[in-house]
């Protein structure tokens, strides 16, 4: 399982890089296909980038940078995504928490 999760992390990294550079090699379609095949293996991943961060979020391991202002903390960088494993009944369980950077942001 850990090898599969490492694979997901690598796919996520490639996807991040590709998206940040505007998909120069048009990999979007291949990335979507990889997601599809991971899904067939029961694995799904999610990037919580820009989502609100609170005390109750146990899907992330956060490093808090800068000031802590409870009401307006956001995930500003995702180092590893949340990885879910689906069972045969379709129920999901988190098998890897996201590794994220959290910062105060004024919206």
């Amino acid at each position: 399982m850990s090898a599969l999760i490492n694979l997901v992390n690598q796919i996520f990294e490639i996807e991040q890089k590709n998206t940040s550079k505007g998909d120069p090699a048009e990999l979007g379609r291949n990335m979507e296909r990889l997601r599809h095949h991971l899904d067939e293996l029961g694995l799904q991943y999610h990037s919580p980038l820009n989502e609100k961060y609170t005390d109750t979020r146990t899907d992330c391991v956060a490093s808090i940078v800068g000031d802590l202002v409870d009401a307006s903390m956001y995930i500003t960088k995702v180092i590893k995504p949340v990885v879910f494993q689906k069972d045969t009944a379709g129920n999901r369980t988190i098998v890897q928490k996201a590794v994220v950077i959290v910062e105060h942001r004024t919206v």
Binding site: D55, T56, R57, T58, D59, F84, N91, R92, T93, I94
Partner: peptide, 23 residues
């Protein structure tokens, strides 16, 4: 706690009326 493990309210003291925002 959410069953997939992504939400945990933490331990909170029970009162007659409880309210919680669930993610």
């Amino acid at each position: 706690q959410r069953e997939d493990g992504g939400y945990d309210s933490g331990l909170k003291k029970a009162t007659e009326k409880i309210r919680e925002y669930l993610t």
